[in-house]
Computed example of a mutant assay.
Amino acid sequence: MSETTTGRLRVAVIVSSVREGRLGPAVAQWFLGVAEGHGGGMDFDVVDLAEVDLPLAMPAWGGEPSARAAAALGAVSTRLAEADAFVVVTPEYNHSFPAALKNLIDWHREEWQAKPVGFVSYGGLGGGLRAVEQLRLVFAELHSVTMRDSVSLHGPWSGLGPDGTPLDTAVCEGAAKGMLGQLDWWARALRSARAEHPYGA
Rank of each mutant, 00 (worst) to 15 (best):
M1Y: 04
M1A: 12
R10K: 14
V11W: 02
V13W: 03
V13Y: 01
S16L: 08
S17K: 06
E20K: 05
A26G: 08
V27Y: 06
A28S: 07
Q29F: 03
V34D: 04
G37Q: 12
G37P: 08
G39I: 01
G39E: 00
G39Q: 02
G41L: 04
G41K: 04
M42E: 13
D43S: 01
F44I: 00
V47K: 01
V47N: 01
L49G: 03
V52D: 04
P55Y: 08
G62S: 11
E64S: 13
P65I: 07
P65F: 01
S66F: 03
R68E: 15
A70M: 09
L73W: 07
R79T: 11
R79V: 06
A81W: 03
A83V: 05
A83R: 03
D84P: 06
D84F: 02
D84K: 01
A85P: 09
F86S: 09
V88H: 07
P91S: 02
E92K: 02
Y93P: 08
Y93S: 11
N94I: 06
F97W: 05
A99K: 00
A100F: 06
A100P: 00
K102W: 02
L104Y: 01
I105K: 01
R109F: 15
R109H: 15
W112T: 04
Q113E: 15
Q113A: 15
Q113K: 11
A114M: 10
V120H: 01
S121M: 05
G123R: 00
G124N: 00
L125E: 15
L125D: 14
G128H: 03
G128N: 06
G128I: 02
R130F: 12
V132A: 06
E133S: 14
Q134E: 13
L137D: 15
S144C: 13
S152D: 10
G155W: 12
P156K: 04
S158I: 13
P162C: 01
D163K: 05
G164W: 06
P166C: 12
L167W: 11
D168T: 01
D168C: 01
V171Y: 14
C172S: 15
C172M: 14
C172W: 07
A175M: 14
A176N: 06
K177V: 13
K177S: 15
M179S: 10
G181N: 09
R188H: 03
R188L: 02
A189I: 08
L190N: 09
L190K: 05
R194C: 01
R194Q: 04
A195K: 06
A201S: 14
A201F: 12
